[in-house]
Design a protein around this nucleic acid. Structure first.
Lengths: 173, 173, 173, 173
DNA sequence: GATGAATGAGATTTCATTCAT
DNA sequence: TATGAATGAAATCTCATTCAT
């Protein structure tokens, strides 16, 4: 995470892990496999976290929680792995596929949450759940990007506005 | 753009440019300078394009135009440079600074457009122009990320929804 | 035999043998010892085979039998170990010594056969048995090399000619 | 030649050549290309040498000259490249093809020499020139192998005998 | 302005060997 | 006997950079 997906050298990884290069290849057959595993691991974590978030609540509260999390993490220069993957996806079919698989899994979780909201009248019934879900994921990413584009931005205010924007749009009157 | 900001080797760049490595160093003092110049060049282009867009119109039409452009470009696997820069900004202070400078310039253009809209009653007057501008930039990025996260997504529908969301929020009644 | 004397890695050998590297070192102290043992084993086999051949017959029939064998084996890309050893002998004193020891043993068998032939008038009496034996071994090797140098050669015809050549020279009139 | 075709490490080659590893790859794209070039170079040299030998003389004198050369070189542990190639040809299709191409070229030179000998009555007319040529090449190799198999052998006597054997067979009465 | 030979550090990967269990 | 995790040196190869011309 410090040096980027491809930026980390084998010897740096070994130093960090406290093992020898020879032994690293006992676990992975190539550096690419490590990159893949990191990508997969990161996304798995994101998905699980999101599942937990979604388990106990509504779309609206899930969004709020994710926004909160995106903001807290943005200071520590985190999200690096995500941006590396987005960038790498443009070159590596494998990373692209991994990213895609995961995006759809998260999207599906959101879709179900939205459907539930529509059934109990919380969410406007005339919206396509899949499109709303995709838009929400995009907007959560957008928060992270805003934080990267300008590190001094008033992220709290931006999040508040974007949150209000989404809620005004999707919440049924 | 083919190999990524750091992924391009000097010799590959030289082959593409049709010059010798020795001569390349006549123009640039290091590979980092090339990366910087590419970043600067790209962002300069984006800024100019945005300025033109903004010159003749309202916030609403500028957003629509940018959305349109984001969608058209998404198919060709473009935006690569942008994502490389976002990723690189996490590691290189220089790239981060370049990105920041440019983001603010674009933001400023948007702020002026928004202020104009507020003066003539098109945009809600109670919104902070800087925050709105930042949010809009973030949302434009979000469109690009959505296209990368899932290459088979119905981008047109997502854009339509996000566009509607923004307009419902910022347009004065 | 698949990868060459030195070309086989310890782990490949272990995989083939179905044992662990740790256990391999229970039997051998180093890879060189394995190479040596393979060389020794192969040459032992060759020597025994030759002894059997020589036991029941004359020089002439022994040569014919060896030529036949060289030809049959040449198709299957065999003789690999022999050529590896000849090549390795140029670098490893141990392999060179092993090869030498064995060559002399085979040579001795042939010498006795030749002497017997000379006693019963089959072989010209004016020939030095040691030189004839060495030449015969060389010529048997030559057949194998011919097959390697050109895989499409008419080996049967070459063998017939070389056989005739030897017989015309050593058989007493 | 000291360490064998594959046995020579890149850094050893660089040390010997007095250049840096980086620069070595300016001339060759891979170690395999170096091996190939060495093989090709060696065989080219052999072929040229043989052509010269053949240019001015008869088959018989060419054979004598080659035998002489094989003997002189055998002391210096030379012929290493040849044996490496023969061994490697069993594993590398490329080396096998290179060896084959060259063997045929040398064979062709010999065939012409033999035909000339047959025309002027020096060589028996009932022999197939191609087979004789192949057998002669094999026998020249045999001399080299004999010298490797037993470094203390009386090579001069063996050569004398094999030479006599060939001449008695191919020379017309 | 322009070349391209040359460098040398560093990248990934392999492999013979050891050792605690 | 037997395992297999672990090592670390060395192998091949890449690449940003320099410099004489």
């Amino acid at each position: 995470m410090r040096d980027g997906l491809q930026g980390a050298s084998i010897s740096a990884i070994c130093a960090e892990a406290g093992i020898s290069p020879g032994h690293l290849y006992h676990y992975f057959n190539s550096k690419d496999e490590i990159v893949e595993a990191m990508a997969e691991g990161y996304l798995e974590y994101v998905r699980e976290h999101f599942a937990k978030m979604a388990a106990c609540g509504s779309v609206v509260s899930a969004i709020d929680a994710e926004f909160q999390r995106a903001m807290e993490r943005s200071n520590s220069g985190s999200h690096g792995l995500l941006f590396d993957m987005i960038a790498e996806a443009g070159r590596s079919e494998k990373v692209a596929a991994t990213l895609e698989r995961n995006t759809r899994a998260i999207c599906q979780l959101l879709v179900e949450l939205i459907r539930k909201g529509q059934r109990n009248g919380e969410i406007r019934a005339d919206l396509d759940p899949a499109i709303v879900a995709t838009a929400i994921i995009g907007v959560i990413d957008a928060i992270k990007m805003v934080a990267r584009r300008d590190r001094k931005v008033d992220l709290r205010a931006v999040i508040a506005m974007i949150g209000a924007m989404i809620k005004r749009f999707i919440v049924a009157e």
